[in-house]
């Protein structure tokens, strides 16, 4: 991961609630979070569904746009003041010219597939308590970095249910 982050030549600072990406934009950048936190969500008819978070030392990317080069529906918004390093698709493509780097990149992508699968199981898990338990076990740090209401949305439950589960 360090090798990828080192490719960056640009740092961006965005304030709380400001957007890195909005619906309909083509954004092929990879973002490395230096400080702060972000959420990726979709929004239809004014109902938000958080898909992913990024906080200190995470990578966040609009993966659909990154892979296809096309517009994507994702919004990426800062939850608090956030500093990100920007790695462009071009920088990644240049990096992937070497065989060793391609092996490294493949392992990063494999890891991502596993994460996506965990997330898929989360969403398909019926019990709210079990959904909460899975995410807590996997990402205890998340509960330090991100306000409850966003985590509740991510877990597809009300903030009240989440705070009840946290106490029990």
């Amino acid at each position: 991961m360090k090798e990828i982050v080192e490719l960056s030549e640009k740092t961006l600072t965005i304030d709380r609630n400001q957007f890195l990406k909005v619906k309909g934009s083509i954004d092929t950048n990879v973002y490395y979070v230096e400080s702060g936190s972000l959420r990726a969500f979709v929004l239809d008819d004014f109902e938000e569904q958080t898909i992913r978070f990024g906080y200190k030392e995470n990578i966040l990317v609009a993966l659909d746009s990154f892979l296809t080069g096309k517009a994507s529906d994702l919004y990426i918004q800062a939850i608090k003041k956030t500093v990100v390093k920007v790695i462009t698709k071009q920088q990644i493509d240049d990096f992937l010219q070497s065989e060793t780097n391609r092996i490294l990149w493949t392992s990063i992508l494999e890891n991502l597939v596993l994460q996506q699968m965990e997330r898929e199981i989360d969403i398909l898990t019926t019990s709210p308590k079990e959904r909460y338990r899975r995410v807590l076990a996997r990402s205890p740090q998340l509960f330090q970095e991100v306000p409850n209401r966003h985590i509740a949305n991510y877990l597809r439950m009300s903030p009240e249910t989440l705070s009840r589960l946290k106490k029990s």
Binding site: I14, D15, Q18, F19, K21, V22, K23, G24, S25, A71
Partner: peptide, 10 residues
């Protein structure tokens, strides 16, 4: 126009 709109929101 999408990029302009992003800047308007920010």
């Amino acid at each position: 126009l999408v990029e302009h709109t992003r800047q308007f929101i920010n």
